[in-house]
Computed example of a mutant assay.
Amino acid sequence: MREYDSETLHKVQSIELSILSDFIDLCNKYDLAYFGMAGTGIGALRHGGFIPWDDDIDVALPRNDYEKFLDLVAIEFGDKYEILNCETNSNYPLMSTRMILRGTKFREYALRNIDCNFGIFLDIYAFDNIPDDERLFKKQARDAFIWSKLLILRSVSHPVLPFGGVKGKIITLACVIAHSLLSFFNVSKTFLYKKCYEASTRFRDMNDSKRLDYLCDTTPYSNIINRKDVFPLCLRSFENLEMSFPNNLDNYLRGMYGDYMTLPPEEKRKNHYPYELDFGKWA
């Protein structure tokens, strides 16, 4: 992890909080369900806000509310924010969405060669229905995982891996080969996105689904959450804001991280230190 100076990190966090504030206002105005997730949830419980070295905010919505939100941002905040995802720019290699503050730049090292207008952002994830039948779920998870990773490898030859050593070298080599083949055969990025979207939303009409998941993470199983642990949502403090979180946030986070209340050693602390950063008029 590369470290920010304290002034720069505080400025990044301050702008992200202003984006989050607008996000919350829009969700509340239109009665859209959202919740803080992952590191944002840890920050809320362990620190009352940001994890001290963290530089992003992660929020999620159930798929239907997620898609409504994307339509509403253009109507309500089109002059202030840009929505970046595979629908708005086929070069974007992730299945998440970024709500980007116009006039800023925030380009991560891993994405420095991607032809997208990256700026200071809020990370937004769609949580999809997953079936109770484990056989059907494993097929959905496998399909979404494979297509999402191929989407990344179509644009990125050396993705960030959660491990090193011999295993890391072997997988890096496999990624380089896959990237080369996808590029050589000019596999459509839009095609890869649509295949992943189909897998992720395969059970969107399953109204009695007991679980939700963001299927396109490092593994398709790390974000599984029981619907009863999400709803009803509860409000918690995050810095100077009140935002929604799953009602059983502890259970969700322990499923992802284990003992998340213990600070990780310095070598395992992560951020998104930028290759390019410009606050624009928001400096």
Rank of each mutant, 00 (worst) to 15 (best):
G103W: 05
G103D: 02
T104L: 03
K105A: 01
K105P: 00
K105H: 00
R107K: 13
R107N: 09
R107W: 09
Y109W: 13
Y109R: 15
A110F: 03
A110D: 06
L111H: 08
L111A: 09
R112S: 14
R112I: 09
N113W: 09
N113V: 06
N113S: 14
I114K: 11
D115P: 03
D115F: 12
C116T: 09
N117T: 10
N117W: 06
F118C: 04
F118A: 00
F118Q: 09
I120E: 05
L122T: 01
Y125G: 09
A126H: 03
F127V: 07
D128T: 10
N129D: 00
N129A: 04
N129E: 08
N129L: 03
I130R: 04
P131Q: 13
P131Y: 14
D132Q: 13
D133Q: 06
D133P: 01
D133E: 05
E134Y: 01
E134F: 08
R135Q: 04
F137E: 05
K138A: 13
A141C: 05
A141W: 04
A141N: 03
R142F: 15
R142C: 13
D143K: 14
D143V: 04
D143F: 11
F145E: 02
F145S: 06
I146C: 08
I146R: 12
I146V: 14
S148L: 06
K149S: 10
L150A: 00
L150E: 04
L151D: 04
L151F: 10
L151N: 11
R154A: 12
S155A: 10
S155Q: 07
S155Y: 06
V156M: 02
V156I: 15
V156W: 05
S157A: 15
P159E: 04
P159F: 07
P159K: 01
V160R: 01
P162F: 10
F163M: 07
F163Y: 14
G164A: 07
V166P: 04
K167F: 10
G168T: 12
G168E: 12
K169V: 11
K169G: 14
I170G: 03
I171Y: 06
I171T: 14
T172F: 10
T172H: 11
L173Y: 08
A174F: 08
A174P: 03
V176M: 11
V176S: 12
I177E: 04
H179T: 02
S180Y: 10
L181D: 01
L182Y: 10
L182S: 11
F184S: 13
F185H: 01
N186K: 15
V187L: 03
S188A: 13
K189I: 10
T190H: 13
T190M: 12
